[in-house]
C-alpha cells in the first residue's frame, strides 16, 4: 500500500497545529522585513558614504544562503553572549534576509515618486519628515505592493528551513512523524500540498489587494 488514508487522517491535526507555527513565523518575519527594509532603504538614500556601507551590507546578506545565516544566529551568537531561542533566531534571520530584498523594492518605489513632489513640499515649507511620511511614502507604497507580496510568498516558502534548527513548524513535524512510523510519503506530501494551497491563496489575496489599491489611486 503506497498511500495510507487512515494514517493521513491521523496526522492531519498534528500538521495543522504545526501550520500555525509556520504562519506565525511568516507573519513576524515579514513584519521585521518590512520595517527593516524601509529603514535600510532610507539609510541607503541618505548619503553617498552611508549609502555605500548599506549597499555592501545588503549585498553581503543577499549573497549568502539563508540557512547559513540561520545557523550563524543560532550557533554563533551564543559565543558572543547572545543566546536566542530557536524560533526567535529563525524569525530574525528570515526578517533580516528578506529585509535586504525589501530594501531594494522600497528604493525602487521611493525613486519612482516624481521629483516635483519633493519640490512642491519644499515650496509649501513642510518639514522633511512630514514630506516623507505624508506625501512621499503614500505614493511610493502602492506600486510596490505586488512585489512585496511576492516576497511574502517567498518568505513563507523559506520557513521549512527553520526545521534545521528544530523549530516545530510543518516540515519538522512531518520529519518527526515520518521517523516515528517510517512512513514519509504521507507527511511530506501533505506538507507540500499545504504549501501549495497556502501559496496560491495568498497569491490570490495579493492580487485582490493590488486591484483595490489600483482602483483607489485611479480615482
Amino acid at each position: 500500500m503506497i498511500w495510507d488514508w487512515d494514517y493521513t487522517f491521523e496526522i492531519l491535526p498534528v500538521l495543522a497545529q504545526a501550520a500555525i507555527v509556520t504562519i506565525e513565523a511568516t507573519a513576524i518575519g515579514f513584519v521585521i522585513a518590512l520595517v527593516l527594509g524601509l529603514f535600510l532603504a532610507i539609510l541607503r538614500m541618505s548619503g553617498p558614504k552611508t549609502g555605500w556601507c548599506v549597499s555592501v551590507f545588503i549585498e553581503c546578506i543577499r549573497s549568502t544562503p539563508l540557512l547559513i545565516q540561520i545557523f550563524f544566529l543560532y550557533f554563533v551568537f551564543p559565543s558572543f553572549g547572545i543566546t536566542l531561542d530557536a524560533f526567535v533566531a529563525g524569525v530574525i534571520a528570515l526578517g533580516l534576509h528578506y529585509g535586504c530584498y525589501c530594501a531594494e523594492v522600497y528604493r525602487a518605489g521611493l525613486e519612482g515618486v516624481h521629483r516635483g513632489q519633493w519640490e512642491a513640499c519644499t515650496a509649501l515649507n513642510l518639514s522633511s519628515l512630514t514630506t516623507f511620511k505624508n506625501i512621499i511614502l503614500p505614493q511610493a507604497i502602492p506600486p510596490i505592493v505586488p512585489v512585496l507580496g511576492n516576497y511574502l510568498v517567498a518568505l513563507f516558502k523559506e520557513t521549512p528551513l527553520l526545521s534545521a534548527i528544530a523549530v516545530m513548524e510543518m516540515m519538522q513535524t512531518a520529519k518527526i512523524l515520518g521517523s516515528e512510523t517510517f512512513r514519509y510519503t504521507e507527511p511530506i506530501t501533505l506538507v507540500g500540498i499545504a504549501f501549495l494551497i497556502m501559496s496560491l491563496v495568498s497569491a490570490a489575496l495579493i492580487r485582490i489587494v493590488e486591484r483595490r489599491l489600483n482602483l483607489r489611486s485611479a480615482k
Partner: peptide, 11 residues
C-alpha cells in the same frame, strides 16, 4: 513555484 524547495527535495 508554489511549494517550498526544501519540501521538494525531501519529497
Amino acid at each position: 513555484r508554489g511549494t517550498s524547495a526544501l519540501v521538494q527535495l525531501f519529497w
